[in-house]
Design a protein around this nucleic acid. Sequence first.
DNA 1: AGAAAAAGATTGGTATGACCATCATACTTC
DNA 2: GAAGTATGATGGTCATACCAATCTTTTTCT
Lengths: 236, 236
Amino acid sequence: MFEPIKNKKIHQQVSEEIQKMILSGELKLGDKLPAERKMAEMLNVSRTSIREALRSLEIIGIIESRQGEGNFISENFDQVGLEPMSLIFTLKNGKFKDILEIRNILEIEAAGLTAERITEERKEILENLLTDLINADSEAERVAIDKSIHYKIAEYTNNILIVTILETISSLMIYFIKDARLKIVKNLKVDNLLEDMHRNIVKSIISGNKEKAKQAMKEHFDNVYLSIQDNEEFDN
Amino acid sequence: MFEPIKNKKIHQQVSEEIQKMILSGELKLGDKLPAERKMAEMLNVSRTSIREALRSLEIIGIIESRQGEGNFISENFDQVGLEPMSLIFTLKNGKFKDILEIRNILEIEAAGLTAERITEERKEILENLLTDLINADSEAERVAIDKSIHYKIAEYTNNILIVTILETISSLMIYFIKDARLKIVKNLKVDNLLEDMHRNIVKSIISGNKEKAKQAMKEHFDNVYLSIQDNEEFDN
DNA sequence: AGAAAAAGATTGGTATGACCATCATACTTC
DNA sequence: GAAGTATGATGGTCATACCAATCTTTTTCT
């Protein structure tokens, strides 16, 4: 049969060209790209097309444009993907429940994986965070530490996809419910549930017991779920 | 303290304006946006800025530009998010193992959720797919049906996030290992493992037994994992 | 000599205007 | 009525100009 005639737009081709250089390793984190005028000359296209390509790469977080300096490959991407996700989520009528559901799944599994792969050095870091949490004297602080603990657990799975996806989902949650984390932490403050639960999680991860770690994380989320059940704001 | 002075770029503001209209429901799937020249006039900015905003929304899959027709809110998004993911994955030195790991997690949980939520109508669809798989007489066909089954299971969780993320991850897998699915299917062809496993999965989902469904899916992936273990191509 | 200030060069950000390519529509023409 | 044709709308690309922020070099002052 005939092959479909390709009619790719210039800016798209330019974008792909840059992506290729990234995928091939030619461009690395933090690298500076050639100046726009230079690139336009090199690829023999207008600066307009170069810029349209850069814009598309910018919004997905791959590059950063700094006026007067240049275009750079981003160093920081933990929160990449939020923009598209939140829009798609809205357009497809996603429910808040969906966010919680997948977050629970991933956090529970992450706890299990981290328990299997934990190192001495990392055990110490987690324990320090736990101590900080117990000694925290403001809710803002507790929220920050709570977030750190969960982030570290995800990071210690050694699976970059889990980290990226969980970050995206967390951002998505915040996007839909402002200060969601703070509200949850407030509710759990009663009876020191927050501290107890996290002590449980950290201890079981440190013990290296996968199933115990998953169970502890599950219980934590069960509590979270109970604590927000009555809050109409989370209803969606 | 002083508030940070906002210095947002025009194209970014335009992009946000459009996003707002989407989030507020003013723009819906398939809707046509005003013409670029018209929007430029309305927002009192140059067409350049409008276009840069549109480009960024286009690459993340939110809108579609059709020359001679106009710009539209996309109808189809299942594969959205791949572009950014694959680049980030590469830049962060992600391993192929990471892809399999999170895919297994999500597919297994998806099977469980679907088992809980299955309806009569959907049972029939799954059973038909199973029959098709058994009667398929080419590997290309088997690959396609295999893919359909997994997609349907994800879809039937009723959780749009699970669908979107699994689609992204699957695409990511294909991106790194061309014809990954075909190679896996080929290996499983021996002893009719593919059919047996899928029969197991579908049957247990239809029975509504969550744990059985998860177990069946887990066994399937254990087999997949075994079948590719010796293949150096999947090493990283 | 050293620091501060000024000037110049580089680079991204925005605006215009022009022209091309594609598609939808209305209008002949037969 | 059907086919072909012109017209207009719309996105795609380009060239140029100028603004704004940053970096680099030079000058100036103490």
